[in-house]
Amino acid sequence: MSTLHTVNKSPFQNQTLISCLGHTKAGDSVLLIEDGVYGAMSGNAMSEVVASMGANVKLFVLGPDVAARGIDAARVAEGFTQVDYEGFVDMAASCDRVQNWL
């Protein structure tokens, strides 16, 4: 039993990513998409809190949205796995439920 959570807002814009990470269960997956991908960057004011709150979940980031924003692969924090659209679909199909945090 696991949930795929998606977050599409930058953690610098609002608290959605923090709220999401505060409501996950161990073993859930969190996928950052659209402006949410800024939450996957290393070396910024949010990096540490994302890493510590996300310690019990699997962290993913949508590659096309990372590339679209010119974020170098080297700037994606350790602990995040990049997936493509196909990977996104597979994740959605294999979990028990999807919760899209708006």
Partner: peptide, 18 residues
């Protein structure tokens, strides 16, 4: 509680966010 809310969410078939 927040942990309780996480349990409620994990107990659903469908979750719709607004």
């Amino acid at each position: 509680s927040r942990a309780g809310m996480a349990d409620v969410m994990a107990d659903q078939d469908v979750v719709l966010s607004f």
